[in-house]
Amino acid sequence: MITVWDWVILALFAALVAQDTTAGPQLLFSEPLVAGTVAGLVLGDLRLGLLLGTAIQLIWCGAVPAGTAVFLDINVGTVCAVAVAHSAGSAPIAAAASMLWLIPVGLLGCALTEVGMRFCGKLVASIQPECVSAGALVLRHGAGWLFAGARGSVTFLAGAGAGVAVAPVLVRFLGAAVDPGVLWAGLFGAGAGSAIAATWRFSKGKAAFLGAAGVFGAWAGGLLPVSW
């Protein structure tokens, strides 16, 4: 159950996430791992936030939101996914269904980013150097930042609002078609593959990659008598 206050806090947080993604300060608290964790904390379900945040982060770890490249707004989408999964009961299958719902939400965020670029273009085109003041320039610049925030809130409210209605259908469909354990194994497999693909070109000689994989695997599997 999501209370009205939760909706308000998450909508404000989604605004900050959208601003951090494209407008500033770009400290990366908008990354899915952080955004998912915070959204989980707000809803009192940290485990769900971490589960979704880690999975989404790993799958999209190579995505680059640079320049004019069109990208899925997965950061606001993550906040949305945590809210939708929480409203659907936080079960593993609900969490997986909310990850699928992230795709249309991300597309909505992407479309609104495009609108924001055009809005800022109009603001810039209206500048007349002869009669503009420093304050007016800062105001125009600030309006772009506020628009980014509004974009985040609108994306979240529209995406999570519709998601709460759609999630039960998705959960029923997925629940009938797939075993939750197998589905999450597949999702984390995709995350692991994305992580390797994103860093493959760095691992010249593969020594660091293989070494770390071997040591961590052995330790986590209980083969090394090491306690950290």
Partner: peptide, 21 residues
């Protein structure tokens, strides 16, 4: 880049034996 590669490897190993799910 080297640290990132190591972490990617570690992530694969950890996900195999102890994922959040």
């Amino acid at each position: 880049g080297w640290i990132a590669s190591g972490c990617a490897g570690a992530a694969v190993a950890l996900l195999l034996v102890n994922s959040p799910a």
